[in-house]
Amino acid sequence: MSGIATVSVAATASSVPDYTISIGPGLLDDGALLAASLRGRHALLVSDANVAPLYAQRVEAALRAARPGLALSRWVMPAGEQEKTLTRFGEVLDALAALGATRDASVIALGGGVVGDLAGFAAACWMRGIDVVQVPTSLLAMVDSSVGGKTAVDLPTGKNLAGAFHPPRAVVADTTALRSLPPRELRAGLAEVVKYGAIATSLKPDDGAFLDWLEQHADALLGCDDAVLAEAIARCCRFKAAVVARDPFERGDRALLNFGHTFGHAIETEQGYAGTIGDGLNHGEAVAVGMVLAAGLSSALGLADASAGDRLRSLLQRLGLPVTIPDGLDPLALLARMRLDKKADAAGLRFILWDGRGGASVVSGVADDAVLAVLRGETAHA
């Protein structure tokens, strides 16, 4: 099929095969591609109430045409981050049991980041690990959560606190699915795209000008230009593939991908993951605010010029994303949420901060007072 881009992701362990990310139009109907990575005769399609009515039947028809003997079942969850729970995780395991899934079975995750995380975690745990094929339908999932094998569910105390590293067998990203995204969800995905631009030099030094490219193509991205979106997705996947190959279990460079996420996750958790039902910020929006806050903290600590944070803020605003903490959130409560973040350690709070020129680093032991000043807006443009 023409117009298909592929990105190879190197194996993270001797027991894990390399896998390919396929990006392009029409892939949801490509049964041969979808079935190519299915090793056994059982497959469970996991989706949500928003995505399943649009695409589940098409994917199942394509799979059955390519693999007539496939025992294929479907499990659909309610949509939203608030559903990414241990209860739903258990329901996926029950669906695998009802299917009679054996150790060579596959889970097919059809949806956004919530579906991908939940389905991937269930695949990691069923019989101590079966294959998962990620079929992302949101921009955020295509550029970030479907790649690299981080799977998890949320707990009331924090986001993604229960999970496992479980690389997919394949990733299939059909860019035409982005046409059905609500504009807000497209913008949320663009926040993660901007994240790669902000720290590009640290991830892939030969593509350090990605932020410049995003500024030049912001209008085309918002307009869902197929070619521009496909290029952005492929470049983001190459960034992530490069860093995952160096650090599969987030013990070093891979933590840089969390730029903006310590602040963002605290906002999401404090709002009770209400963004997906319209009462708060969704993940991408929270990350956008978090990046502005991280840039402000970087400036306050003397790591970056304030002008770099202004540039980042301006691009996010062009893309229709929020850049300030929602009203009513208590800075002290947000700080308490950060202490439970996975990036905190015995030395205290750790943040991914930047130099304003595409470089990022993990900074430990940041004083509470400095963080609170940023949360309270007491530093320039924080």
Rank of each mutant, 00 (worst) to 15 (best):
Thr176Tyr: 04
Val171Phe: 06
Ile277Gly: 04
Ala234His: 00
Arg337Asn: 06
Gly80Asp: 07
Ala347Leu: 14
Gln82Arg: 15
Arg337Pro: 00
Arg88Trp: 13
Leu281Asp: 02
Ala300Gln: 13
Gly111Pro: 13
Leu181Lys: 10
Ser299Gly: 15
Arg376Ile: 05
Leu139Glu: 04
Ala232Asn: 07
Ile352Lys: 03
Thr175Trp: 02
Pro183Asn: 10
Gln82Ile: 13
Ala43Lys: 01
Leu161Ile: 06
Asp154Thr: 06
Ala308Arg: 12
Ala141Glu: 10
Asp18Cys: 06
Arg58Trp: 14
Asp48Glu: 09
Asp253Ala: 15
Gly296Leu: 04
Asp225His: 10
Ala32Phe: 00
Asp368His: 05
Asp94Ile: 01
Asp131Gln: 07
Lys195Asp: 05
Glu192Ala: 02
Leu38Arg: 01
Lys342Asp: 10
Pro322His: 01
Phe239Gln: 09
Ala295Arg: 10
Leu316His: 02
Ser2Met: 13
Phe259Lys: 09
Ala234Trp: 00
Thr12Ala: 13
Val135Ala: 02
Gly158Trp: 06
Val76Tyr: 06
Ala191Ser: 15
Leu28Cys: 13
Met1Thr: 14
Val133Gly: 02
Ile325Thr: 11
Ile199Leu: 04
Leu257Asn: 08
Leu319Lys: 09
Leu353Lys: 03
Gly3Leu: 12
His381Trp: 00
Ala62Gln: 13
Leu221Gln: 08
Ile233Val: 15
Leu332Gly: 01
Leu312Asn: 01
Gly31Ala: 10
Lys343Gly: 03
Pro322Met: 01
Gly112Phe: 10
Asp225Met: 09
Gly309Ser: 13
Gly116Gln: 07
Val133Cys: 09
Glu185Asp: 13
Gly24Ser: 12
Ala370Tyr: 03
Leu118Asp: 02
Ala173Tyr: 05
Asp247Phe: 10
Gly348Gln: 08
Ser8Thr: 14
Phe165Glu: 09
Val228Pro: 02
Gly158Phe: 05
Asp253Ile: 05
Asn282Asp: 14
Ala344Asp: 00
Trp354Pro: 00
Thr379Ser: 04
Gly278Val: 05
Glu231Tyr: 08
Ile267Ala: 04
Ser180Val: 11
Arg88Thr: 14
Asp117Pro: 12
Leu63His: 07
Val193Thr: 15
Thr269Glu: 07
Asp30Trp: 07
Pro25Leu: 10
Gly320Val: 11
Ser15Trp: 13
Cys237Gly: 08
Leu181Asp: 03
Ala109Cys: 11
Thr276Ile: 00
Val59His: 05
